[in-house]
Design a protein around this nucleic acid. Structure first.
Lengths: 344, 344
DNA sequence: AAAACAAATGTTAGCGCTAACATTCGATCC
DNA sequence: GGATCGAATGTTAGCGCTAACATTTGTTTT
């Protein structure tokens, strides 16, 4: 394989894979020309390029991305930080990000904070250490030191899901308005004793923002806005539990506004099994607009957020910035849509 | 900030962030000592360590992972390649992998092939270029060149989901047996005109393996085993469509064995809306054991595969290998479990 | 045909870190 | 008190690549 005269001094480990220099030797050009064939093929004459490509093929060269990234101080990594992988919403956002970034040759580094703000800070540090080209992070509220660090950072920072002026770029929707919108719908339908039910609302402050919108509207109408919180992560099972709990503890409730579709669907499916009529006995509303809400009976009234679009748009804006194009708005409202089913 | 006497020769870009050398100067030790504080703190005297840590804090040093990985030829990246991010199954596997790897300080590089075998090969090449510490890949069937490349690779390769002797390590279950098991259950229940229905079965050969198990058993009993394929990706909507199609085109069918729970649930929910009784008019079976199958009415008969456990066990075995421990079995059968609901 | 210029390729010096070997230091032994 | 040894720290030389500048080659202009 490689020439291995036992050098007088120490040798470095080295997986002994072919390097750029091997390709260069094999094809009779300099290393930088090989580098150019890999990174900007148009700047190399076609005949040269073909010779180099043949050599790469012949010796089975695999480029070392670490070395390239170190030398150019740019890794084409996009750090993506989400609070949960159990929630389909973030999966869909990641999907939108992935598809778009991948097309442009960027690789995602995925971090999961589990709704822990210190974990978030750690992940940011690590990802900066990988010379990420940009960072996409969920929400607008971070550790103070973390925010400061990102503001100093010279590369694009995209905050998603929630709407507002943040560190740099932003794509999201107003959760306060969404909560308010659903509360208005419930009032319009004639419901007056409305409970808001959510899971893990201490960490998930976007659910809390929706609650605040809901509460403010109800209180403006002179109504109470009781909140039922659950410490577990959102799941169908938890929706069913919360439903049973509310029905027992707060009899007289005529509508439950759930923090997300999973909880709401869990409630409806449980009601079906238990013979409780939705919406005649109690109305159920959700948030997110997951497909299965439209397949259950009664169809779930919910607020549809454009999850995959958030990922796609966020990625497009980041890519535009990385390619030197100016991004017009630093705050992008993707909006939401009330989707009325038969559950309210 | 940094000393910047205009050197006589060119200067390199350089984000001008603090480096190990800055920390070393600040704390009066050599760079390697700082490196040791970061990588093997126990090998440094406590007083020295504290001095270095204070300096790191003071000047806001963020370590450059690229440089470290290049120098040590080891990135602590784990390449993970899955065929889809739209399928919850892979999300749960990824979750199991992530949680376990993260605890041990490994970062996942996620690749999505979209069931394209050439895309898979490309991803493998890229990920090897990142000096990944190990690779976790879905399935046992790859591009020949890709398999060869991985066999030459000196690091752990873990093939998951499907069971069998592969490149190196393996954690999964027998899809053939699972398909056969469900077919046996349907026969036991007295069904004789059974259709197997799947989505995207040209790319998803694990669904096809389940079909083969199903078919072989039925044929051994002198029964036909018709197959209804759908070109779209699996979704509730597609399950409903496939259900309608089978009911019209193959009237007399008394059971439908779906390739996955999403399709099966879509069928049941559609039947509910259309007033078709399950299982009286037609029985429905699925595969995977997603939670919502147990929340719908009738509860879905399915085969539960331990998705998250596959991720966790795979990660544990890879970590054991990376830490030099011998891994006993190179093939690990996680098995599956028939879960009988009221839908059959 | 020389001058002028653009395109293609080459030379050199790092990017920031760690492996390998070298040295120093302090404690223990006889 | 010098030999012995392990623990702590230091010196040096890259890891494999690319930015910046330098040179060569080819093409046009006058």
């Amino acid at each position: 394989m490689s020439n291995s005269e036992p050098s007088e001094r120490r040798k470095r480990r080295g997986a002994d894979n072919p390097t750029l220099a091997d390709v260069a030797r094999e094809s009779g050009v300099s290393t930088i020309t090989v580098s150019r064939v890999l990174n900007s093929p148009d700047s190399v004459r076609q005949t040269t390029r073909e010779r180099v490509e043949a050599a790469i093929e012949r010796i089975g060269y695999v480029r070392n991305m670490l070395a390239g990234s170190l030398a150019s101080a740019n890794s084409r990594f996009i750090a993506v930080i989400v609070p949960s992988l159990s929630n389909v919403v973030f999966i869909e956002v990641i999907h939108g990000l992935q598809t778009t970034f991948e097309k442009h040759g960027y690789q995602i580094l995925l971090g999961n904070t589990e709704y822990d703000i210190r974990r978030e800070h750690e992940l940011v540090q690590t990802f900066l250490g990988w010379s990420s080209s940009a960072l996409v992070i969920t929400g607008l509220r971070h550790d103070a030191a973390c925010t400061a660090m990102l503001k100093r950072w010279q590369k694009p920072v995209m905050e998603i899901m929630e709407l507002g002026q943040g560190i740099d770029l932003n794509v999201g929707l107003s959760h306060y308005d969404a909560g308010r919108c659903m509360a208005q719908h419930l009032l319009d339908q004639g419901y007056r004793r409305i409970v808001y039910a959510g899971a893990q609302m201490d960490g998930n402050y976007r659910a809390r923002l929706r609650y605040e919108g809901h509460r403010d509207l109800l209180e403006a109408h002179g109504l109470e806005a009781p909140l039922a919180e659950w410490p577990d992560a959102s799941a169908l099972e938890i929706g069913a539990k919360a439903f049973r709990h509310v029905m027992v503890q707060r009899s007289g409730t005529d509508a439950i506004h759930f923090a997300d579709d999973t909880l709401a669907a869990g409630a409806i499916l449980h009601a079906n099994r238990a013979g409780i009529r939705v919406p005649d006995d109690v109305a159920i509303a959700g948030f997110t607009g997951l497909p299965f809400g439209q397949h259950i009976t009664p169809r779930l009234t919910t607020i549809v957020s454009p999850r995959e679009a958030i990922g796609r748009i966020a990625a497009q804006q980041v890519i535009a910035r990385l390619e030197g194009k100016a991004v017009d708005a630093s705050v992008c409202d993707v909006g939401f849509e009330l989707c009325v089913g038969e559950s309210t």
